[in-house]
Design a protein around this nucleic acid. Structure first.
Lengths: 255, 255
DNA sequence: ACGGGCGGCGTACGGCGTACGGTCGCGTTG
DNA sequence: CAACGCGACCGTACGCCGTACGCCGCCCGT
């Protein structure tokens, strides 16, 4: 597919599907297709077989229905993916209001990480502009409320959320890469590294990049693998929260 | 393409191409193909027409050569993209050693942002495991040196770099989405938002998500568009650096 | 002079998203 | 109660993609 070229070409239609503005229209007792059934099936496929396996033909097949029947409910694949994303947002827990802002924000980060771990395809699908579905809006609102009372301006609240969610995405991607690699090559991360190491050493004359060699080795041994995604997530999250707490403190003393 | 399924299936071959272990082999005065010419052409196409336009047929055509001739030098599209990525890393400036760590790290962030702005396709191509080409290694080494003398452990140095580069990537992606959207729909970000707003309001009963509505509006008016990628980058970068300086200070007093 | 090897490539295959034009059974209307 | 229109369903086909395979013809070593 030439991607989402026209994903937003018809805002009316796209948004109508996202927000389910449509009667159930169960006319007969036939296959009984619906946007919801299609989306659930598609998410299932993407979860278990990966985004590459998500094919319109595959979706039809899984529903026991012709390929083109799917197009009765969804204008195209891009829109289907959009609804999948919004649906996934919908199954997240809403942030609690307990604890101070740092605890709440940390919770938001962990919930989002769990989302990406459950639906790794989202990391590759969320390429275009945010979907603007009902669940994304609800999520955005509830996550904003998490940092609504700590003295930040509206613009800063948005930026804080963007920063934290961006870090989560980055970490989730790094972790997902390791998992994907293991599934695709049948090697663990360590084995993959081992198989590349001799070749790397061939090219990399000893001493040319001392820092890279030392740190790469150190990081590898520390985590038992070439990269420690969980460590990177935790370390980064604490750094980000530390950084945020600096502005929060500023606002508290200045305001 | 089923993506990079076998991108690393033959480490020897892949690494050999990455590190250019091969005589130039300019046998005749024919088309004179080479990995370098192919990669430069491919980068050109991706830069000006986007990653979706990067097709093996298109590459051959641009080189005045049959499609399959490209395969003489490159095992497949995945490997081609890998070399493109490493080549792009190669044209980055190497970080200076002037100033304190914060200035140097900030410079690293800005250089990487500029890279992504010049080659937006990298944001969508860098999906798999890092490429392990010569330029990536050199980049990693020189960027590490930027934070090598501030009292962090090796593992922490790696994590700091990962954090900063992750933030850059996230910001660059957000910015790229806006640009792509404008190019694809012919609307500016503001216009796009305007065209969606009436529909959103239809679904979004006033007052259901007060915080989202207020902050969304505030952020939009502040930046003159629905989202201010540059602001998000700057704000996030300062927060991240603040967070890092907390550990650095800790190490300085404790060590 | 010649023969092998390799750079170059034409053709073809399987798979993708999806446009288009049917078919058929239901709910509504006279 | 009969006719009908509409919408769910779908078979076929088109134009893309990546790339396997086998063939040419030229250059270079002999």
């Amino acid at each position: 597919m030439a991607s989402e070229r026209k994903a937003t070409a018809d805002p009316a239609r796209s948004l109508a599907i996202l927000w389910r503005t449509r009667e159930p229209t169960s006319r007969s007792a036939g296959p009984g297709l619906s946007v919801d059934r299609i989306v659930r099936t598609a998410i299932d496929i993407a979860d278990t077989e990966g985004l590459d396996a998500l094919t319109m033909r595959r979706v039809g097949e899984a529903l026991g229905v012709g390929t083109m029947s799917v197009y009765t409910y969804v204008p195209g694949k891009a829109e289907l993916v959009a609804v999948m994303i919004d649906t996934a947002y919908g199954e997240m827990p809403r942030p609690t209001v307990e604890g101070d802002w740092r605890i709440r924000l940390e919770r938001v980060a962990r919930d989002n990480l769990a989302l990406y771990q459950r639906h790794r395809w989202m990391l590759r699908a969320e390429t275009t502009r945010p979907v603007l579905g009902p669940h994304l809006v609800a999520k955005y609102d509830s996550e904003l409320n998490t940092v609504a009372d700590i003295g930040l301006t509206d613009v800063e609240m948005d930026a804080v959320l963007t920063l934290v969610l961006g870090h989560v995405r980055s970490s989730a991607r790094a972790e997902s890469e390791v998992v994907d690699l293991e599934r695709e090559t049948g090697m663990t991360d360590g084995q993959w590294w081992q198989s590349h190491a001799p070749w790397l050493e061939t090219f990399l004359t000893a001493g040319t990049y001392p820092t890279a060699a030392r740190v790469g080795t150190a990081a590898g041994q520390e985590h038992g693998a070439a990269f420690g995604p969980e460590y990177a997530f935790e370390f980064g999250l604490q750094r980000v929260l530390d950084g945020i707490s600096v502005v929060v403190a500023e606002r508290a003393t200045a305001g």
